[in-house]
Design a binder for these strands. Structure first.
Lengths: 150, 150
DNA sequence: CTAATATCAGGACAACTGATATAT
DNA sequence: CATATATCAGTTTTCCTGATATTA
């Protein structure tokens, strides 16, 4: 009686899938647990750093950039506004939009975050990777993006 | 008045950090939204597939393998037991342990999950990657693991 | 007595859906 | 009228912490 044939390659792919499953899960949790430090949630840090590097934006634009619904960024932004880290003003050119920009206090906060390498991902990239490995990582981005493509 | 010096390499690393931030976030969400299909949550699928490939286990061992707390797997397992997909029996050799194994119904369920390529990660690995690219991905695992190391 | 295992109870985080108001 | 933007309210998912009982 013959065993059902399962190629070695298929078995290896299942193993890879399993490793990726654990890796991706661990990544989410690791990222989430970073949130407790420096008093800002991860979405808040992401928004703050994005406003710093790309300038003023809107709820909808931020949502598109982060790949989430506007309502989700809305909550994030509400927290940042309450903390006085970002300021909102109506867009003179389009009355539907509310332009969001970093407040002065936040600029310093972002500088500190970066200078002290408190930005978790940046810190790891600097401390645990050689320039060449960062290059490898950049190359792997294309592959990883296939997991989130529609 | 001189500009403050920020090397091009540092700017590139910040960009890489930002891309990774978005990628990792999108990955978590993509994985989460897969849960709605085939009636099992992701943790449930992970546990089921692990019990299938590695045989009977315990709550604590599963928690270690998945990198979460035993209480988290406990909830997952409770759901699977309620659905009749796994069975529990006291370990004769160690009274503290409860051995978990797939129920008969679940074996078929897992077979179906796999045969039909309903396992999301496996499906993507098979359909969107060449064998050579899967090899590249395996190589990148080492790099990615650095993000979750203590 | 200390360590490991399992489980109960409650809470936090970050996304979601649906509905609504306003401006283009 | 159809589309885009912002926001209110409530829900879901998945993990967490803390406490407790049992066995090694």
């Amino acid at each position: 009686m013959r065993e059902q044939t399962v190629s070695a390659a298929t078995v290896q792919t299942h193993e890879l899938a399993s490793q990726l499953r654990v890796l991706f899960g661990a990544l989410s949790r690791r990222i989430r647990e970073r949130a407790r430090f420096d008093g800002l949630s991860n979405p808040q840090k992401a928004v703050l750093l994005r406003l710093e590097s790309e300038g003023p934006s809107t709820v909808s634009a931020l949502a598109r950039a982060e790949g989430v619904k506007p309502q989700s960024i809305g909550q994030t932004v509400a927290g940042l506004r309450a903390a006085g880290l970002i300021e909102a003003a109506p867009d003179p050119a389009d009355g539907r939009k509310t332009l969001l920009r970093m407040a002065r206090a936040a600029r310093q906060r972002a500088l500190v975050l970066r200078a002290a390498h408190e930005d978790w991902l940046f810190g790891i990239l600097e401390s645990r990777f050689t320039p060449q490995e960062r290059e490898q990582l950049r190359d792997a981005l294309d592959l990883l993006h296939r997991f989130i493509q529609p």
